[in-house]
Write a protein that binds this DNA or RNA. Sequence first.
DNA 1: CCGCCGGCATGATGCGCGTCATATGGCGGG
DNA 2: CCCGCCATATGACGCGCATCATGCCGGCGG
Lengths: 236, 236
Amino acid sequence: MSTLHAERLRHALSTLAMFKDLPAALRQRVEGMATLLEAGKGDELWHAGDSAEHLTVIVSGRVKVVRHADTGDVILEIFTAGETVGAVAVYNRMPYPASAIVMEPSVLLRLPRAEWFDLIEHDPGFSRGMMLELTRLNMALTRKLAAMHGTRVDARIAGLFLSLAERMGRTTEAGIEIPMTLSRQEIAELVGTTVESAIRVMSRWNREGVLVTARERFVIPDRDRLKAEANVTDEG
Amino acid sequence: MSTLHAERLRHALSTLAMFKDLPAALRQRVEGMATLLEAGKGDELWHAGDSAEHLTVIVSGRVKVVRHADTGDVILEIFTAGETVGAVAVYNRMPYPASAIVMEPSVLLRLPRAEWFDLIEHDPGFSRGMMLELTRLNMALTRKLAAMHGTRVDARIAGLFLSLAERMGRTTEAGIEIPMTLSRQEIAELVGTTVESAIRVMSRWNREGVLVTARERFVIPDRDRLKAEANVTDEG
DNA sequence: CCGCCGGCATGATGCGCGTCATATGGCGGG
DNA sequence: CCCGCCATATGACGCGCATCATGCCGGCGG
């Protein structure tokens, strides 16, 4: 990880929706206090238990938040460009309850807690944005919680990819394409199962042409077939 | 359910921490717009899919929020006096993603969405309180999500009661006492299992004296024994 | 070029727990 | 007083999936 200089910081701030419309005065101060960070695949931004001193905003790349359990890890959420990570811990002045790991080369912006509180306090738009993000996160978690329970593993994996398709899928002639690398291990942690079970489902679907694993992406030839395959109630 | 009159409303507002310190002007308006509601055990405040028009605050009693899945229901959270219910849906102007059911005779305060937004906008303290609640809810959900996964049913039930003991347990000579009625059905929905499994664990523990079910309360004679019984990592 | 390792794949086995079935005790209504 | 309803309880059975084990392939360093 390496710290970058002020020029790129200014540019990053102009890209991020949450800072773009900030009054000039506030934005000045943010420029002075925020720092940029470059991280590579596998880098750990923080580990569960670390004290949470600054808010992290993703400028580009992807970060997964992983909660450790004695039975294995669970990926709580995958965050992408424009989203904030670790807001809950920072806000409550408590140690991070989960670890954050970079999934691909990424650029992160870090804002000290005091500065962040200042923004929330003085800019109602900013505060609104934070609440929106928090409520969205909430909904994602509740959905996951409900899905996690009784349903079978293949249904959960189907649900995962259907939701990914909705969030970042591009329709091509081969079907819906999801441009994202995701190891079997990560798939397993996302739906709360073991690597072996994830592999079994994925390779079966690969054979049957329901969900094809390709280089750097997944392809869903027939969305309805994937839905039917595990008769999932369409929830996104 | 029956609507009560202005006198009790004023009294309710003075009890609730979130309204107590409101400037007089704002408080006047809230008094004009909020309504009180009395509900009995089993009453459904709303059903999943209903449109969310006002924020609900619990004056007294307990409310559970239940998410329906094809495999059975899951209790997302149990809310008690002073807490708000349904904030996420109301804030995002979307239909409730889950149902809210009253667990014991309760008094609810309902605040129209527009009025609530007004409070958030004009009173920074109020807004801060909402974010605190949201982040806390978030943490509870992430913990639940991590616990839900690989662990066995008895471990999850043990975790549930250990966390209840921490939140509302009183130490007596018989052990830690949790003053709360909770049917086996509700225990099952809280940890994401079936009634039968919950019953099996509970009656076994009853026999062994690990966790005793009594009238209107549960008793944990030996906290460490309950922890050991399902070798749970102490997480609260 | 070979050995090592990390990701992927597949088979065998056992057990937790969901499912179905049946029994008992308390409680309210006709 | 009896009957139906609900919560609690207990047993039998089977399936999904975690666990363990083994093999294959591509990349990388010595």
